[in-house]
Design a protein around this nucleic acid. Sequence first.
DNA 1: GGATAATTATGCGGAACGGTACAAAAATAG
DNA 2: CTATTTTTGTACCGTTCCGCATAATTATCC
Lengths: 203, 203
Amino acid sequence: MRNGTKIEKEARPRGRPRGFITSEVLERVRDVFLTKGFAAASLDELSAAAGLNRPSLYAAFGDKEQLYISTLKHIGQKSVEAMDAILSGPEPIEQRLGRLYKGAIDIYTKPPNRPGCIIVATATVESPSHPRIGAAANEILASFEKAFERGFASSDLKPAPSPAERASMAGAILYAIGIRARLGVPAAELRTFTKSMIPVICR
Amino acid sequence: MRNGTKIEKEARPRGRPRGFITSEVLERVRDVFLTKGFAAASLDELSAAAGLNRPSLYAAFGDKEQLYISTLKHIGQKSVEAMDAILSGPEPIEQRLGRLYKGAIDIYTKPPNRPGCIIVATATVESPSHPRIGAAANEILASFEKAFERGFASSDLKPAPSPAERASMAGAILYAIGIRARLGVPAAELRTFTKSMIPVICR
DNA sequence: GGATAATTATGCGGAACGGTACAAAAATAG
DNA sequence: CTATTTTTGTACCGTTCCGCATAATTATCC
């Protein structure tokens, strides 16, 4: 882990400095991708939302597919962190799951778009035409289920079903929420759905 | 149920007869929509797959959105029929579910595309921009869960969780398969997933 | 200050898009 | 056979699309 580079003076790069912050741009274009999906999101909309001109977007992120994948990975990482923060709590696993699902429902049904989950609701469709998008989405979903698995591992549930099996089921519930929210199912209905599912998963 | 119209001579309509069958066209354009999604499917591809010229498609089905919705409803109806055929069988509900999921996995992972489910994998993304697509998809998913509910109602499972609750969970499993298949998860892994979920749903 | 390097802004260009106008073709009605 | 009705085939129109070429701007290096 030795760091041999000089860090004095923060090593400001040579040319004109960027007028934007990468994470902020990704979070702005996310809104467009989340609403329109990858295919229907135009570069005009994306650059307008980002506050960057088209060539700046290209120089910083590459083409539309690369920009979309960067957005997916950024959101995926932040989502896993949020999931871990909830799932590593001290309460019983039932309560941790309840908080997680409630938070997800709030995000997924947020007005005015009811966007659902960007992975299951917008990335999945592109998988056959854009295999790299599919691979990135698959990895993120796998990391979601790993987070669930860590949560179930730190609980006093019976060893069967295994934490991994419970995690798959918890993921399926989350994906169902992400889909049905986008299709218009009211938040209250989604909440009662999760409330009835949690005891089944945690039996 | 009285049928007062004259059916003699089959009432051949006036002008030039159509050179296609509606259901066949819908099943051909389905392949394009299923692979590319709604937004990325071009009318050139759709009319080529249908074997119809563009104006014929428009005259018969309206614009691209209407054609897509007609395709969704056609597949949704046939899917519900297939689900009912399996779920109304005489075996225990666990076996019926197993057969249903096995059939779904075969379809969802079919080479070369691993298309997944057209509803959850291609319709969901369009919901914010095309509310009629979202409404149609939501209705179809609701009819899927009604079919599950009928299956659970004709079983000797305990009354709690209710057939409706079990149906929601069975639907969530089906949607998860439809997503993960499209994202590249191997069929064998999906089968072990369902095998571990069925006892949980039917506990 | 001058040279260099990176980013920003303007604008374009070829291709693909969804949708339609129009005329030829194929059937029935009388 | 003539008139009518519907479908089919060709060709096109205006728009939007993605990506880039080019030049102006803003910083550091010497």
